[in-house]
Computed example of a mutant assay.
Amino acid sequence: SGWNEALITYVMAAASVNNSIPKAVYDSGWARNGAMKNNNTFFGYVLPLGLNIGGPLFFEHYSFLGINPRGLKDNYADYQTQTINHTLINYEYCKANPKQYYGYSSQCWGLTASDTPNNGYNANAPDNDIGVITPTAAISSLPYTPTQSMAALHFFYYKLGDKMWGDYGFYDAFSLQDAWFANSTLAIDQGPAIVMIENYRTSLLWNLFTSCPEVKQGLIKLGFTAPYL
């Protein structure tokens, strides 16, 4: 049930030629008959869907590697607003840094799921903040917050250097508060970052995915509208 990263599952299920789900499954299951709506304001930005203060940023990445949120709407939200405002709330939270973690700033931001200093997993978010920044959070948000995301990318690469950059790109996460830098490189970080950099540059993956007739049919069946449908 929403709001989270599983939107793509419902779209693909509705797109199935032989075993398609009805719209009622989306409305009562995913959208919980409207209970996934939020519409409260955080740091000056209205959040249409999901948890207060937004939850981890992967909510706005995984489904939207292929689904283009620009101009996408249904009965529950404007998804361009959702993706941008969730990201801006995450950015403003890190900039405000209410827990006073060392290093958080307008250049050092981005809360989403990652490894942690104690070798565990944490779904980092404003309401679950343990001082760990995950580079994929800001970088995969380039289509939503290009200026803020590029500033973060420059900080990770030029300021942190080889502490955060390896053979396969940026490492998973770091905490300046704990002087900890992950040595893990996760495909679930690198994939979204690469795809969203290209969507920011050319919309290539968005255009390819949403050009598929099955995808169009799935979105339309669930009640979505968009310029590309």
Rank of each mutant, 00 (worst) to 15 (best):
I84P: 15
I84C: 07
H86E: 11
H86G: 08
L88G: 05
I89S: 05
I89N: 08
N90V: 05
E92G: 03
E92T: 05
Y93K: 02
Y93M: 03
C94R: 02
C94H: 06
K95N: 07
A96N: 14
A96S: 15
A96F: 09
P98T: 09
K99T: 03
K99F: 05
Q100H: 15
Y101K: 06
G103C: 11
Y104D: 09
S105C: 07
S106V: 10
Q107H: 12
Q107A: 14
Q107T: 14
W109T: 04
G110Y: 11
L111F: 07
L111D: 03
L111A: 06
A113N: 08
S114I: 08
P117Q: 15
N118S: 07
N118H: 06
N119H: 15
Y121S: 04
Y121V: 14
Y121H: 13
N122P: 00
P126A: 09
P126M: 07
P126Q: 12
D127W: 09
D127M: 05
D127K: 07
N128F: 15
N128A: 14
D129K: 05
G131T: 00
T134E: 01
T134P: 02
T136F: 00
A138P: 09
A138C: 09
S140M: 04
S141G: 14
L142Y: 14
P143M: 10
Y144K: 09
Y144R: 11
Y144G: 11
Y144E: 05
S149G: 09
S149P: 07
M150C: 07
A151F: 01
A151L: 12
L153K: 11
H154Q: 14
H154A: 13
F156E: 06
Y158T: 14
K159Y: 06
K159T: 15
L160I: 12
L160E: 13
G161K: 04
D162L: 15
K163D: 14
K163G: 14
M164E: 01
Y168K: 09
Y168H: 04
Y168T: 02
G169D: 05
F170I: 03
D172P: 09
F174W: 07
F174M: 01
S175P: 02
S175D: 00
L176G: 11
L176K: 06
Q177F: 00
D178R: 01
D178F: 00
A179F: 03
W180P: 11
F181A: 01
F181L: 05
F181K: 02
A182T: 06
S184L: 12
T185G: 12
L186A: 09
A187G: 15
D189Q: 04
D189C: 06
D189R: 08
Q190V: 10
Q190G: 03
I194G: 04
M196F: 10
M196W: 05
I197D: 08
I197E: 13
E198R: 13
R201G: 07
S203K: 01
L205R: 06
L205H: 12
L205F: 13
W206P: 00
N207G: 07
N207A: 08
L208A: 13
L208C: 08
F209T: 06
T210R: 04
T210H: 07
T210G: 05
S211F: 03
